[in-house]
Simulated assay, not measured.
Amino acid sequence: MTRYISADGKWTEKEVKDRLLKEIAQYQNHGVQYCPIFEAKQNVFIGCCGLRPYDLENGVYEFGCHLVRSMWGKGYASEAAMAMIDYACKDIKANKLFAGHHPQNSASRKLLERLGFQYTHDEYYPPTGLHHPSYELKQPPAQ
């Protein structure tokens, strides 16, 4: 899952623990986090999807979805993303969502565009050391 979200594509055990603690704190402080996703029929872990604070003064949250490689291209990211966007709009009343993707991850670009996100700029992402294409969603997609 970390192929496109860290410079070398791997996380150490300490980085995983630190990330988990960060997610717990974000939920406690802001009511949002990345949640695990499981395939329903076989109850197999397939990734995570969620929100994190981005610009709370303006009601902007960062959206992300990360799947294990064996689950790419099966529609799980779209399904999880639409549920998370619905939650962001209806439950936390987000004014806007922000999202970015690794410059080499064209599947994420296509997903964001299908969901209605619009490209705004490239933004430096320290974990990869790269500028990632960045997007905003002002209106949720029609369902």
Rank of each mutant, 00 (worst) to 15 (best):
A94I: 11
A94M: 08
N95R: 15
N95A: 12
N95G: 12
K96C: 14
K96S: 13
L97G: 03
L97P: 02
L97N: 07
F98N: 12
F98E: 10
F98P: 00
F98Q: 10
F98H: 15
A99Y: 01
A99C: 04
G100D: 11
G100T: 02
G100P: 00
G100Y: 12
H101K: 02
H101M: 00
H102P: 01
H102R: 01
H102Q: 00
H102F: 02
H102E: 03
H102K: 07
P103E: 08
Q104F: 01
Q104Y: 04
Q104C: 06
Q104M: 09
Q104T: 04
Q104S: 11
N105R: 07
N105T: 07
N105C: 12
S106C: 03
S106R: 15
S106L: 14
A107P: 00
A107M: 11
A107G: 03
A107D: 05
S108W: 05
S108M: 02
S108N: 10
S108L: 02
S108Y: 10
R109D: 06
R109S: 12
R109V: 05
R109A: 15
R109T: 07
R109L: 10
K110Y: 12
K110N: 11
K110S: 13
L111G: 00
L111H: 02
L111I: 02
L111P: 01
L112H: 09
L112Q: 12
L112G: 03
L112F: 13
E113M: 13
E113G: 05
E113F: 01
E113A: 06
R114D: 09
R114E: 08
L115C: 07
L115I: 04
L115F: 11
L115P: 01
L115E: 12
G116W: 09
G116R: 14
G116F: 06
G116T: 05
G116Y: 03
G116E: 10
G116K: 13
F117Y: 15
F117P: 01
Q118R: 15
Q118G: 03
Q118S: 12
Y119M: 06
Y119G: 00
Y119V: 09
Y119P: 01
Y119Q: 05
T120W: 12
T120E: 11
T120K: 15
T120V: 15
T120Q: 15
H121F: 08
D122W: 06
D122C: 02
E123R: 15
E123A: 14
E123Q: 15
